[in-house]
Simulated scan of single mutants.
Amino acid sequence: MNGFEKRAQQIKQKIMQATTEMLRESGSAKLRIADLAKRAGVSQVTIYNYFGSKEALVREVFKSYIDRAVESFEAYMNEGHTMREKIGHILRLEKESYREFPPGLIKEMLAEDAEMAAYIERMYREKTIPMTVRIIEEGKAAGEIAERVSVRHVLTFIQLYMNQYQTLLEMAEHSEDNEDFLEGMVHMFFYGVCGKA
């Protein structure tokens, strides 16, 4: 990468970082290129030259975030962790992602952008589900999942859990020790109320 390309990449990253911050603060509907240019310290023309439109910029920021999260988790998957560690890692990643992109913001962005919604659906189908099935199958092979519990059972249970994850995070934030609260929820995920570690 030559000096010009490196500088261009730095400018692009600065714009994307400012966009992420502003999306968290006020959502995509209130995001204005003029305000974004001021925050990023670039001209509006520069933003349009790099991204073409506000919609394309928001789409690229969100896709970039999703791609990094998937790559990071795939790397973690290949490090030899137990199923319990992998599931715990998923729940911690969810906690981080809810801070970066709160569920309301994600719903707003997906409702406004059919291309982004299709991308998320494709990533879920092609990456998330296969990775989750792999975790479950490896857990079954290692004896970490009861014989009578099927892959479908675990997928359903994970979906039920994730559907309520925003509520769990809010409860964790209001507890005295949110890490301990989440660790307790991970324990219940695996062992139920009466199970042992």
Rank of each mutant, 00 (worst) to 15 (best):
M1V: 08
F4A: 06
E5T: 08
Q9I: 02
Q10G: 13
I11A: 13
K12V: 08
I15P: 03
A18N: 14
T20E: 15
M22K: 12
S26F: 01
A29T: 12
K30Y: 03
K30M: 15
K30L: 14
L31V: 01
I33Y: 02
D35F: 12
D35N: 14
L36T: 00
K38D: 08
G41D: 11
V42Q: 15
S43L: 00
Q44G: 12
V45E: 11
I47R: 00
Y50M: 04
S53C: 01
K54M: 12
K54N: 11
A56K: 15
R59I: 11
V61D: 09
F62S: 01
F62Q: 04
K63W: 01
S64I: 06
A69N: 09
V70M: 07
S72H: 12
A75S: 05
M77F: 01
T82E: 04
R84K: 05
R84N: 13
G88W: 10
H89D: 13
H89K: 15
R92E: 13
E96P: 05
E100D: 14
F101P: 02
L105N: 00
L105Q: 03
K107I: 06
M109P: 03
D113Q: 04
A114S: 07
E115M: 13
M116G: 01
A117F: 02
A117Y: 07
A117K: 05
E121L: 14
R122V: 00
M123Y: 02
Y124H: 08
Y124F: 15
E126G: 04
K127N: 12
T128P: 07
M131P: 02
T132V: 08
V133E: 09
V133H: 07
V133M: 06
I135Y: 04
I135H: 09
I135T: 14
G139Y: 08
A141Y: 13
G143T: 08
R148N: 09
R148F: 11
R152T: 15
L155Q: 14
T156S: 00
F157I: 14
L160V: 10
L160I: 13
M162L: 08
M162F: 01
Q164R: 09
Y165T: 07
Q166C: 15
T167F: 10
L168D: 01
L168R: 00
E170A: 10
M171W: 06
M171E: 02
A172S: 05
A172N: 11
E173S: 13
S175R: 06
S175L: 01
E176K: 13
D177K: 04
D180T: 03
F181D: 00
F181V: 03
L182T: 04
L182H: 02
L182V: 04
G184H: 13
G184P: 06
V186T: 09
F190A: 14
G192D: 04
G192M: 12
V193K: 03
V193S: 05
G195V: 07
G195F: 12
